[in-house]
Design a protein around this nucleic acid. Sequence first.
DNA 1: CGCGATTTTGAGAGCCGTCAAGATACGTGG
DNA 2: CCACGTATCTTGACGGCTCTCAAAATCGCG
Lengths: 244, 244
Amino acid sequence: MNVEFPCDACPLRALPAFRAFSPEELAFMDRFKQGELHLEAGGAIFHENTSSPHVYTVVKGWAFRYKTLPDGRRQRVVKDLPGDLIGLQAVLHAEMAYGADSLTPVLLCVLPRTGFEELFRSHPSLAFDVTWLASNEERLLDEGLLSVGRRTALERLAFLLWNLHHRARRAGLGGDGPVPFPLTQSHVADTLGLSLVHVNKTLKRLRDSGAVSWTNGSLEVRDEQRLMELGVVSPPEEGPRPFL
Amino acid sequence: MNVEFPCDACPLRALPAFRAFSPEELAFMDRFKQGELHLEAGGAIFHENTSSPHVYTVVKGWAFRYKTLPDGRRQRVVKDLPGDLIGLQAVLHAEMAYGADSLTPVLLCVLPRTGFEELFRSHPSLAFDVTWLASNEERLLDEGLLSVGRRTALERLAFLLWNLHHRARRAGLGGDGPVPFPLTQSHVADTLGLSLVHVNKTLKRLRDSGAVSWTNGSLEVRDEQRLMELGVVSPPEEGPRPFL
DNA sequence: CGCGATTTTGAGAGCCGTCAAGATACGTGG
DNA sequence: CCACGTATCTTGACGGCTCTCAAAATCGCG
């Protein structure tokens, strides 16, 4: 296939956070993979309430899923980082109930939605991985609901920053130093169910606490203990995870 | 097996909302099924942050998943009705990040978590169903996040009542008349991210609008059009769905 | 240097939370 | 059948967190 990254050269393979494939699985995925999609920052990946012939694995960059109400109110739902699968709903339902767009330039691995039946038939272990990814996203959504429903603005913000920092690290970004953090405060507001103005004021309080510093699109955690307390974070499961 | 409902007598099979099994699938599920669990109303099904050897399909009754913060704030996450699968996370992760309890007396179909590997190996079509269920729950969570993040109290309440009414109908409850509705206002508050008092006051406004009547544990939709407008509901996908 | 996007800050309003108390419903025991 | 206790529902008063409106400051970039 004429792609920049055949699966055995996939940059995600190298990361310890992801489970290793058997040679046979790797060969299958190489056939399954249909192409690559490069997008600019701020581009649409899916529109809301449409169907898509493709499912994507994020290889590089940051993307965001969202839902909107008819009058334009927007709620961002899940942040997708390298290794995450976008658009699984397209395989199982006629339409996708969410949209997605890119925050940074992204590289997406293109998988045909029609190929999943064969994947399930011939590779149970990969089917299991698909289900793992779906279940993991459910877990993120549970946390998001808990945040928006019950945490205060300061807690929400602390939780979000900690969580994204943690996930970005696992996805191989940033080494030990600050992590690249391409969100605007408006994105954060859409994620937390807050207004832009209030995010800004809350962020000021959080900065004054000395737990984090977030400037110029990069995020540094100065006092992780304190940040976790402020965000009422419960430590997550570690260990390798799958991706497609 | 010594159970009240072998799979071919499962009361859910009779409902048009669920997809039919092949005889072979049915035979497999009959072997897979490990037993039945009857619980009183208000009983715990799972505790938060524990592991479970079982996964359950709700056959009769209503159950609720929830998450809590250390200081006791609680957010209810997904309502589980007949046909829904509870505890899939137990198959894929070491611990479940949510708890679940029953609202009414429930009958649960018990599936061993260790059996899912074989299910994926021998029955790709059922594995697909498992993934469908996971993806469907993600869809419910997306809607929940949109509600709690962006809808006003009145909109949230209208949306919730419409949604539960719709799902209860599909699960075969209530015929054309009022639907049994075993929630307390406190449950609703925990679901919507509101306080009990505010739910009560909002409910009064909603009742005054004439769209719904909710008394004595039963819910009647008087003006569906109006209720959908108030809740900013987008019509859902119809058609048969799977269950295990 | 100038323009748009983003961030910051202030003022005022309103939705919703907390506190408190009473009313109603329901199951239990006398 | 009535008394009583508990759970649930209802209502009012008050306060605060967060929203909206508005405008200025800063940043990124051509």
